[in-house]
Design a protein around this nucleic acid. Structure first.
Lengths: 241, 241
DNA sequence: CAGTGGTCTAGACCACCAC
DNA sequence: TGGTGGTCTAGACCACTGT
């Protein structure tokens, strides 16, 4: 760290009387500088290397990483190990209409999805939510969405076996009259991190949808987990008249 | 710290080898250990000091901080400068019913809110969304929710002056027939960070609500920003019959 | 005043990528 | 093989809290 930089607290302060100490952390300064820099760059542009940024901005590489990490967390930047740090494109919007379990709208347009249906034992997440009568199985509908090769969203729906699978994929389950949609911000479990190709502990959107019938019984439960740094959610609702 | 082929991707004998990292980062190890420790502690319990944890777990304090930071980000822990690191209680749930702009439900119960109404110039966030006829003013309804002394959520609604303020606070604006609710995960702006008493760059939930009338004109726009580490969102929707 | 979290550094080594 | 991001360290100093 050079003595040419003044106005920071710390090592320079030993040499000269500290004048005004504003709460101006270097990390915040670097983040704002990078945000301005990124604003002028096209999607996909590569940033200078962290070591170069550190030299240019007269801070340590650690500080550069802390600053970029904050932009990575909210999807403004993406790092590629061994390659570089890049400006991110717009987020993928997931449209969660009341009668549909999950729909992807652009941009970007290149979205594929896989879908699998199987009989399932009742997982922990469903316990206590979906009241399963004895002798009635549970269907699990698993789906995942990808942009290019990057998985962004995985979903597991659980519904009573009496429901039609076709209905369950394309619309609300039989008999459903209302749905609660809970959105939470939490750390990815090891399994989710594995599916989404992120580190365990990465913040994700957890969307829990619970369908009710006329008598407020839960007829289906769906859990949707998507990368909070790459996705936004959109819900459309009609207003009561 | 080496890679190993430990499984096969896909189902039913897909022949793509799946490379799984066998790495065991100290940070992940520490985070998991702390998560287990926290699971056995009551809300509000204080963790050992970072320096003590570093000594106990045989890692540097930096690594302890990285691990705890991941638990702080998702609301499992909260740090208090000069005091300690504490186990967090459950998140506050914001109930976003279609006809109501914002409602807080427990827990915890101690929620106060402030409300202010004023004539406003059209802010940037509304430009292009709320089509304001010439000579018609805009009303801004600002509200904030607090738990104890901690502000968790700030909201700004913008609506045409012809609408009733009372209606705007307690229900959907006059003439609204449907609403889009967009949920995004982004960094707090400096102003938002100031209101929410967090560092700028802290991840927040940004909830953008847009009300439409019968002819799909936008009659009101509301922006709700809340701390993603302390809040979850709940939306209730009726299903079309 | 002691203890605690908050920030920052300089350097080390590893893992991955592209040439 | 050189450049890049990913992790980790030991230590320093600052800012805040509570006794």
């Amino acid at each position: 760290m050079s003595d040419a930089v003044v106005g920071w607290a710390g090592e320079a302060g030993a040499m000269m009387p500290e004048v005004v100490r504003q709460t101006a952390w270097r990390r915040d300064d670097v983040r704002e500088r990078l945000a301005e820099l990124v604003a002028d760059l096209p999607d996909g542009a590569r940033l200078p290397a962290e070591r170069d940024l550190a030299d240019t901005l007269l801070v340590s590489r650690t500080t550069v990483r802390q600053a970029t990490q904050e932009l990575v967390a909210v999807g403004r930047l993406a790092r590629r190990h061994g390659s570089g740090t890049y400006v991110c494109g717009p987020k993928v919007t997931f449209l969660l209409e009341p009668g549909v379990r999950g729909t992807v709208v652009g941009p970007p347009e290149a979205v594929l999805k896989s879908c699998r249906v199987r009989h399932s034992s009742v997982p922990a997440v469903v316990t206590g939510q979906l009241r399963v009568p004895k002798g009635v199985g549970v269907l699990e509908v698993g789906r995942s969405w990808l942009v290019g090769d990057v998985p962004l969203c995985v979903e597991s729906s659980y519904l009573l076996d009496r429901d039609s699978v076709v209905v369950s994929i394309n619309g609300a389950p039989e008999g459903a009259r209302s749905v609660d949609t809970a959105v939470e911000h939490r750390a990815a479990t090891a399994a989710e991190a594995d599916e989404l190709l992120v580190r365990a502990g990465t913040p994700v959107f957890a969307v829990n949808r619970r369908y009710y019938d006329d008598t407020d019984n839960t007829v289906s439960v769906a859990v949707l987990v998507c990368r909070a740094d790459r996705c936004s959610l959109l819900l459309r609702s009609a207003l009561p008249r």
